[in-house]
Design a protein around this nucleic acid. Structure first.
Lengths: 216, 216, 216, 216
DNA sequence: AATGAATGAGGGTTCATTCAT
DNA sequence: AATGAATGAACCCTCATTCAT
């Protein structure tokens, strides 16, 4: 392989080291800020958290929807990774679901809420692929738990993902840390409710991630 | 002394009938609007829903926090009513909890979330009283369920109220009325998780409503 | 005529007196500012000239293109009025053209330049009507001058209107007043060039106002 | 002493060949861009047209006014060249004026308009010299035409230069290259108006280029 | 010397709040 | 009491200019 080949492999020119660092800080800051304030969070807030000027956000992301796109993509990918890891490692099917759910909280699954509201991003191929991969991975976890009779049969991927997002969204204005003490606790209660045998009849119907958009 | 002197006698003079009607319409409109759009909803949207001019809001409420104060008060009062009604009517202690929780959703308990973040309102005597009444009522429900061995022993009022608020909070940035279709479903799952016997060990500790503020 | 009829005649509710005054000041200020700085002039500059806050512009005009629409319409109407008046009053056909041209300068014909660049406004029926009326009036003036053999035959409405706009646009940053001393002088020279008999052959072709858009 | 010490000896050291090329490309690109978009054109647009990075503009020109300075200088020099060439070549004195005027349009005389508004540049010795040379050359053309009785006696250099600039100024906010089709046509009409005998009496007074500043 | 990256300042636009009718 | 109108402050985004590679 020649030096020229290296370029061919990475057609986008190499970012400067400081730019790479800034980009990462922006994505992290944006993920945290969006979890706390929602997708309408002020860019200034994100910039402040990232320690950069606000115009720097625009150098890296043409507009808000592009930033949301990247964050959503990044979080979905990381959560899908978690799901696949847990699936491979954890022999107990329901325990695997638990581990996945708690890991997803740590990965800021709450940042996925724009997924449900942002029209544009939803149809992007890259995001669709990530969503499908995530859904497959979580479905595999749930299928295993269903198969083992550990998970009540009347729930599906959408139930877990939506409730997970809702339960983990921090209150605006509060520091994340303080709120976190409830998250794992209430998530655990919710997971207990998911366990078979079902203790009640559920209203409504189980939904997939794909369905979410059609109704939102 | 003329009729108009009534003001002097009762500093809180009787509002004109239309003013009373407006005030009620504003509180109702604001509660609905905040549930749909979040606590940052535009005043103009509230005014539009209430069918009044924007400046009329300011005649009734000095600012947003005062409006939130009244909404919170109203919601807490109505939820406490529900708790007391259910307590009196429902012989099955856990079923009573379920009925209360679902009723609270209908009363838009999600609108209470600003309560947890707004410093000023929290310490207001009127609100404190309502909060204490609500807590007593819900505690009575939970105590009964605990006593009957139907509710797992490691949960308290704060767990129910916080999770209830979280599950019913609207997605920020969305007018996502459709979201309601998940709420009762996921609430039911959560309630199943609350039922005794406990299916897992919970991290953290049970909290009361009073505690919420000290940590938030 | 009854009181009810008055409403029927003016379905749009009556503006408050101060709002009417502000609206007029804004239109005037915007016309002057656009003549000087072009249609991209800062709203802040217009607001400053009108003596109002910048948000007031948005109460009266939803966006820049609506403001441009009104100014263009207003200027075209006033210039068409001038053309018709001169046509009725001035027996000397070429002198009529001169009087019209100098009057159009005073009415800030330079404000029409957005007409040539703004896509949206151009197709609006109201503007199209005003443009056609203006063109008819100026065409009548030119036809009369052509008929009397006073105007060279190789020029048309577009030539006069475009050159008029160009010659009267003040230099940005300069006070209007200082520049005005050239305007009538150079306009006079241009009008002399329009007189028959033609002293040279013209490149290009005569154009109407309608044509302007197709090429711009 | 090494070769690198050349800088010390000649503070205006020789530019590298690529730097010279870049400088020329920038001036050309800036002239064209300013003619099309006006003097407020984005530096990024100029850099893009010149095929260099944005920061390179600042290596060659400290700020916008310095860039304008050089463009103005360049345009004035080229126009003066044209005037002198025409004077030497064209025996018909009025035809010489016509040729000069149309040539000046091609040299983008409209780019000179910032000259009239930019305080700083106007008094720069280099520019003053160029302006005086231009004025002498155009005055010579006009004197010859006056002497031959071909040019009306009540006009001077300032009339020609100002009208020339006005007629060739681009419409603000438009990349209106199409506008060129009017320029030679209307310039021709204006030149016809300059021809002797005068067909009207002019308001105001003839001015020189020097005068422009005192009034602007 | 060249340039990608960063940023503060400025203009556009919205909205909570105040003012005047 | 009610409300249309006004506005300053906040946020979005762009761009001239500076910085670091």
């Amino acid at each position: 392989m020649t030096a020229t080949d290296a370029k061919a492999v990475r057609p986008q020119h190499r970012l400067r080291a400081d730019a790479v660092r800034n980009r990462e800080r922006i994505v992290t800051a944006a993920r945290e800020a969006m979890v706390v304030y929602g997708p309408e969070v002020a860019f200034e807030e994100i910039a402040r958290r990232a320690g950069v000027g606000n115009a720097t956000l625009y150098r890296h992301f043409a507009d808000r929807s592009e930033l949301i796109h990247h964050i959503t993509l990044s979080v979905m990918t990381r959560i899908a990774d978690q799901a696949e890891t847990v699936l491979a490692e954890e022999p107990d099917a329901f325990q695997a679901l638990r581990r996945f759910a708690h890991a997803a909280v740590e990965e800021r699954v709450g940042a996925l809420c724009p997924l449900l509201t942002d029209e544009v991003s939803f149809d992007h191929p890259e995001l669709r692929d990530a969503r499908e991969r995530l859904e497959r991975a979580v479905a595999a976890l749930m299928d295993a738990a269903h198969a083992g009779g550990r998970l009540r049969p009347d729930v599906a991927v959408g139930d877990l993902m939506v409730a997970l997002s809702q339960l983990t969204r921090p209150l605006p204005g509060s520091g994340c840390a303080d709120f976190d003490r409830f998250v794992h606790r209430h998530l655990q209660l919710f997971l207990d409710g998911l366990q078979a045998p079902a203790r009640s009849e559920l209203p409504g119907a189980a939904v997939t991630l794909q369905d979410l958009k059609h109704h939102a």
